[in-house]
């Protein structure tokens, strides 16, 4: 009996249906084009995966607490721009510049969080405005031109965008960042006291507050975390391609939210899953690579991404409904 019960609760879990969909997707792409599973393509996917994946981890925690952040794509663009400008000015060391960039992210996240919690404006409106401010700032200070990034080898470059080979696969250190941060996020959300608070706040904020949970403080810190992760991801990306573009990360906010939701985290808060988000990140990454490989024309690309995301969400909802009924 308990075995059956456990099995049905596993099937009912949102991560499970996401995993099934991911497997189907991978199978379809692998059959459609043999190159999909080639070392080159897998290496390529693993290079891109962490950059959005890292942001998605923060977004999962934030969504679970009942808020979301539309400014992550803009922060992804601005943070490395600031770092590069500081380095190019010749006044500061690269380490200091990176720190300054992350501190800026802390400030952006704190402003988002403070306005949402203390003034009580919805995070949709606050972070949408922040998106415009941050993206506008990046464009203005660069006058719209991409900056040449730091391309001299060194400790920080290796730390953020170093690469290594395992057999015929080429991986970036960012993959380690993603794995380490994922493990940390799984621990915090599912096993730590803080995770209990995050889920409770998103599920029923008043109940959490009535039990003495500092809901506002938790939310503000989650906004800061998400912003910092977005900035970190932006720096990783800029080092990898050796350029900091003021328009980098455009549209990432929606793609990240799609990853999180496709993975099974509730858009309405209360229910979050890091494992699901990892599956969701893998899913969107394989869609992006897969449809290029099977030869979808470049300009039609987003149509396919959108349709496939919608299809996945519908499938997801149906699987969930079925599982709940049985």
């Amino acid at each position: 009996m308990p075995d059956v019960k456990r099995r049905s609760s596993l099937i009912r879990s949102p991560q499970f249906s996401s995993l099934v969909i991911l497997m189907v997707l991978l199978a379809v792409f692998a059959i459609a084009d043999a190159n999909f599973l080639s070392p080159l393509n897998i290496s390529n996917m693993m290079a891109f995966l962490p950059e959005l994946g890292i942001i998605a981890l923060g977004m999962t925690l934030l969504l679970t607490a009942g808020e979301f952040d539309l400014s992550v794509g803009a922060v992804f663009g601005l943070a490395p721009v600031i770092v590069m400008l500081l380095v190019q000015s010749g006044q500061v060391d690269i380490g200091v510049a990176l720190l300054a960039g992350l501190l800026l992210c802390v400030a952006i996240g704190a402003i988002n969080g403070l306005i949402v919690t203390k003034i009580g404006i919805s995070s949709f409106l606050v972070t949408l405005s922040m998106l415009l401010v941050v993206r506008g700032a990046a464009l203005y200070i660069t006058q719209g031109f991409p900056l040449k990034s730091w391309d001299q080898p060194g400790f920080f470059v290796t730390l953020l965008a170093g690469s290594f080979n395992i057999g015929t696969f080429r991986f970036y250190t960012s993959l380690w960042w993603f794995i380490a941060l994922s493990l940390l996020a799984i621990y915090v959300l599912h096993y730590a006291k803080l995770g209990n608070w995050i889920s409770a706040i998103g599920s029923n904020r008043n109940a959490a507050v009535a039990r003495g949970v500092p809901a506002d403080a938790v939310k503000i810190w989650l906004f800061i975390l998400t912003s910092v992760l977005a900035g970190l991801a932006g720096m990783i990306s800029a080092f990898r391609i050796s350029a900091a573009s003021p328009v980098a990360g455009t549209g990432y906010e929606l793609e990240v939210i799609a990853m999180v939701v496709v993975g099974g985290t509730a858009l309405t808060g209360g229910r979050g899953t890091i494992l699901g988000t990892i599956v969701g990140a893998l899913m969107l990454r394989s869609i992006r690579n897969g449809i290029v490989l099977i030869g979808v024309p470049g300009l039609a690309y987003n149509i396919f991404v959108g349709v496939i995301i919608l299809a996945m969400l519908i499938l997801h909802a149906l699987l969930q409904k079925n599982a709940a009924r049985s």
Binding site: K193, N196, A200, G202, S203, N204, A207, A210, G270
Partner: peptide
């Protein structure tokens, strides 16, 4: 104090609700 609608978090288990804010760690 127990309010009609604001006492429990529906997405958490009974055990987690019972100890919300006073979790054994």
């Amino acid at each position: 104090t127990i309010h009609q609608d604001t006492s429990l978090a529906p997405d958490l288990s009974i055990a987690r609700n019972l100890f919300l804010g006073r979790e054994p760690v």
